[in-house]
Computed example of a mutant assay.
Amino acid sequence: MSLARFLVKRALQGVLVVWGVVTVVFGLRFISPGDPANVLLPPDVDPQVRQQVIAELGLNKPLHVQYFEFVAGIPVGDLGLSLVTRTPVTGRVLSKVPATLELAIAATVVAVVIAIPLGVVSATRRHEPADYGATLFSLLGISTPNFWLGVMLIIVLAVQLDLFPTSQRPIGLDGVFGLLVAGQVGNAVDGLLAWAWHITLPAVTLGTYFTALITRLTRSGMLDELGKTYVRAARAKGLPETLTRYRHALRNTLIPVITVVGLQLGTLIGGAVITEAVFAWPGLGTLIINSINARDWPVLQGSLIIVAVGFVLVNILVDTLYAYVNPQVAFD
């Protein structure tokens, strides 16, 4: 199968996945407790005014009519209007995507930079102190709740030691690029440093579990590859041990690692809710929590749809990378 046919096939599958997410999320709106009108209106409002507001919001229409109107607007980027602010949902959701992507990618970079070398060291020094230390780190990383870790990092590193800020996002990478385009190199460098300073604690918090997972996966994969015949043959030919480990064994270990990295990147995009809430990071997670509290279902639906689309795109990208990491993998 050619790359073009593979991409078309996966795109069609992705459309079905997104449609399923849209249907489930839309259905949850009607079985969840709480009425948006109760949030928008005081308890003692006149019943006629209440019915008028419900009619203006379109909440009195039959379920199937609301569903088809909502689905019909998605292909053209119309996700409806916020029940609270009466502003387009698409603009509100897309404005939060850069902050969430920055946090997810930063957490992934932290995890990969730490985990792969740690996993290689653990595998090549099996049953040594370095191996035991890496195993203990993985166990602690997987077992530690990220919300608790985030609070502890804030208390110790931000409050007591005053090494990092406690919250907020002073400037995004889009703002940094805008300064570079405008020729303000000095301000762009300062903005980039401020961004890195503020995102360090959230990225470490979000990426700790991911780091532990990749460490264990790299270790088990390296142990499996180092025991295979081609590694013994490479050593028998007199190849340097470093070349054998990193050029051959590690490369063959990267297939499952890439799979997990891709899947976890999509998970991080949708799973940063707690981390964003702890650090007041203005991304999709914060928007989702605020939408749930306000019963603002159009904004919540739009946020979850964007998360689903991001997850699908990441998975397609990961599957495409397989062929470049291992030519034996075909597009099927």
Rank of each mutant, 00 (worst) to 15 (best):
residue 57 L to A: 13
residue 224 D to Q: 14
residue 73 G to A: 12
residue 154 I to H: 02
residue 152 M to G: 01
residue 319 D to T: 10
residue 192 L to W: 02
residue 131 D to G: 06
residue 89 V to F: 07
residue 63 L to N: 10
residue 224 D to Y: 08
residue 130 A to Q: 13
residue 91 G to R: 11
residue 195 W to C: 08
residue 70 F to A: 05
residue 230 Y to N: 14
residue 249 A to S: 09
residue 225 E to R: 08
residue 177 F to P: 00
residue 160 Q to Y: 15
residue 219 R to I: 13
residue 88 P to M: 07
residue 6 F to E: 11
residue 320 T to A: 14
residue 127 H to V: 06
residue 220 S to E: 13
residue 251 R to W: 01
residue 49 V to Y: 05
residue 17 V to L: 13
residue 323 A to S: 11
residue 124 T to M: 07
residue 54 I to S: 07
residue 122 S to A: 15
residue 86 R to W: 02
residue 257 V to T: 11
residue 122 S to G: 08
residue 119 G to L: 03
residue 25 V to A: 14
residue 297 W to N: 12
residue 297 W to V: 06
residue 139 L to D: 03
residue 107 A to R: 04
residue 267 T to G: 15
residue 29 R to P: 00
residue 183 G to S: 11
residue 74 I to W: 02
residue 300 L to V: 14
residue 48 Q to L: 13
residue 31 I to E: 00
residue 51 Q to K: 14
residue 264 Q to E: 15
residue 329 V to K: 02
residue 43 P to A: 13
residue 27 G to A: 13
residue 99 A to Q: 01
residue 146 N to G: 07
residue 74 I to H: 01
residue 267 T to N: 15
residue 254 L to E: 10
residue 55 A to H: 11
residue 254 L to G: 03
residue 256 P to E: 12
residue 239 L to C: 02
residue 140 L to R: 09
residue 62 P to R: 06
residue 302 G to N: 12
residue 94 L to E: 04
residue 8 V to Q: 11
residue 239 L to W: 06
residue 291 S to T: 09
residue 251 R to K: 15
residue 98 P to V: 00
residue 149 L to Y: 09
residue 115 A to W: 00
residue 182 A to S: 15
residue 125 R to A: 00
residue 194 A to W: 01
residue 194 A to P: 00
residue 313 L to H: 04
residue 105 I to D: 01
residue 29 R to N: 08
residue 229 T to H: 07
residue 170 P to A: 13
residue 197 W to G: 04
residue 31 I to R: 04
residue 247 R to G: 03
residue 163 L to K: 09
residue 216 R to M: 11
residue 222 M to I: 07
residue 156 V to N: 03
residue 23 T to P: 04
residue 192 L to Y: 06
residue 165 P to H: 12
residue 22 V to L: 15
residue 3 L to P: 05
residue 50 R to E: 08
residue 159 V to M: 09
residue 228 K to Q: 14
residue 1 M to H: 10
residue 313 L to D: 00
residue 332 D to G: 07
